[in-house]
Nucleic acid binder design. Structure first.
Lengths: 340, 340
DNA sequence: GATTAGCACTCGATGAATATGAGTGCTAAC
DNA sequence: GTTAGCACTCATATTCATCGAGTGCTAATC
């Protein structure tokens, strides 16, 4: 167990290192107001903290820097996560509300806002449309050989795709098919739509059966396309200001990783569902993010579970501030009503 | 006027420098098979070329590197632009054709392909929907307070926006409005749509005038949103392999610039309409691209003018290869029929 | 027993001095 | 007009000494 003083010192080392990105030495610490011990005393405690694996030295004659274990301890014991600053949250809410009544714009704004507040990079995953329910499906001929399939959900989400016919479609068949599908499928979650269309087709025997089935296929194929949830990146260039990313060796993997939209989406979707979760350094298991920490949280908007937002910074990130801002943003989103 | 030998030397210097990114000296050149002169002779010609501003030396004891003027001369006189390799073009066409019948996917593929072929970064601007003509407009209520405005064009392009009502909309008014708008506006170019809606509204006197006008406004506001043409980036990480972008000072402006989608779009749209145009170094007038050259070209797809594609590399880019590949890609696109 | 002063020691960072070598410009010979 | 020869330049790499922040240990002090 750590003594009171060791705790103070650990906290001081991490706070200091977070600010300066420089190893911190015993003399520097002894000059702080909240640490009125001699540098020798601090050195002794530092040696203990090092034995416990909480801090480490880059080399003999440098100061100490926190280890990942140290950060973990800091985050788990020394960062208070639950305190919501009502005023600040309200203020954030105002800034979000001002932006839009459309959810996609709102999420983008939230991502930008969070990265502005923290100077880290943020990634926000929008609503997964698979849970949306079908409001209307439509097939609209453009000319003899092409048409547009439109799918609108109860949340106002729209998917569309241009399709090509082998032969002209009879307008009445199109209309009939569309009406039929709408009657049968309204309210179906998008995720089940493809399956459901298949079921409906098999139940049927109609005139124009052939054309009918062909259209069904077209529509089905539209639904089948993997429509990834919308992804927003905020403050990508913040990374350039981080001292640990001033060399290509560190910068390149990060930038390459963050530009890979699909991988990013998969990663965000794979995160455990929690309110606020901090993953430190190599904990996240991603090689490109070895030297990064991530604060993630699911968020709700207007009462409904919506998506995930993540904040990525160097391992030496300001966890206290980051966690607080994250908390305020998701609280502000939670309180935001879509219909203004 | 340049002598035959000076031309040979200029070409050799540029070819060599493009390959190695190192200043090239007289001794290196004299060892080439196609330059059977002594290093002293070459030095004399180099001095002349330098006087003409075609090459320059980074410092006294280094070799020569091409100046922007030199590159300009090289591109204008020593790169043949019109030769299309039928086989290669056909092959590219096949690779594109395999990908999709949907234009947006196709453009994305073309951008990726071009960056794969050249190892430079490419940017492609999709069709500008402002020229598309309205095929259908629709307003679809989701619940009492929200609806989706849908706009579909003759090219299969879809725009949509969620709108909020103050009060519930009567279904028959909605239907009436939509029918009216479709009758009047079908075939209108998207760019003029907003204006035209305004005109139509002012001509009218109907029951439900108020709700009617309100809807019109909603639809108008949807159209008014600046919907940028679709933009695709290919091979962004190629920049990491360029020796001139191995330091943050050079890399950062480039990456920050290329990530700014809106600015990129404006820039591409502002380019002069031409088949293939090469802009060298500071010619492009963009600070972030001081040390870059750009090969741009408008392209057509399936006969219709479509958009712009650009290839961005260091000033020391392989112009010959770049221009050739660009030519092949736009030729392949031109020959691609959308309906497969 | 806990704290602190004192001191030898470590080791990265900084900077001056030096060596290296690729490349040039000029001159004189071919 | 071309080439060999040579003095000169200058960025780069290397070596070496110095500096100083920081440590660990020991002995004195509270």
């Amino acid at each position: 167990m750590l003594t009171e003083r060791q705790l103070l010192i650990l906290r001081a080392i991490i706070d200091d290192y977070i600010q300066t990105a420089q190893p911190v030495g015993s003399r520097t610490l002894s000059k702080r107001d909240d640490l009125s011990f001699s540098s020798a005393t601090i050195r002794n405690d530092m040696a203990d903290l090092e034995d416990l694996g909480l801090i480490e030295k880059p080399h003999t004659s440098a100061g100490r820097i926190p280890s990942e274990v140290g950060y973990r301890y800091y985050v788990d014991h020394l960062v208070e996560t639950k305190i919501i600053d009502e005023r600040a949250t309200y203020h954030l809410g105002e800034r979000l509300r001002a932006s839009a009544q459309e959810s996609e714009v709102l999420i983008r704004q939230a991502a930008d806002l969070l990265s502005d507040l923290t100077n880290y990079t943020t990634v926000a995953l929008g609503p997964n449309s698979q849970m949306n329910r079908l409001a209307r499906i439509d097939l609209m001929p453009l000319d003899e050989r092409r048409g547009v399939v439109l799918i609108v959900t109860d949340q106002g989400h729209v998917e569309h795709r241009t399709v090509v016919f082998d032969s002209p479609m009879a307008p009445d068949v199109v209309e009939q098919t569309v009406r039929f599908l709408n009657n049968r499928l309204k309210g179906t979650p998008l995720g089940q739509l493809k399956l459901r269309i298949g079921e409906e087709v098999s139940k049927l025997h109609l005139a124009h059966q052939e054309q009918f089935e062909f259209m069904m296929q077209l529509i089905q194929s539209t639904v089948g396309v993997h429509h990834p949830a919308s992804l927003y990146l905020g403050g990508k260039k913040n990374i350039f200001n981080q001292p640990e990313f001033q060399t290509l060796d560190t910068l390149r993997p990060f930038l390459e990783w963050i530009d890979e939209q699909e991988r990013l989406t998969d990663w965000l979707e794979s995160l455990p569902n929690r309110e606020i979760y901090v993953s430190i350094g190599s904990e996240n298991g991603i090689v490109a993010l070895q030297n990064c920490s991530v604060i993630t949280s699911d968020y709700t908007l207007d009462g409904q579970t919506f998506g995930t937002i993540a904040m990525i910074g160097p391992t030496r990130m300001d966890y206290r501030h980051g966690v607080q801002m994250m908390g305020q943003i998701i609280e502000a989103l939670r309180r935001t009503k879509l219909e203004e």
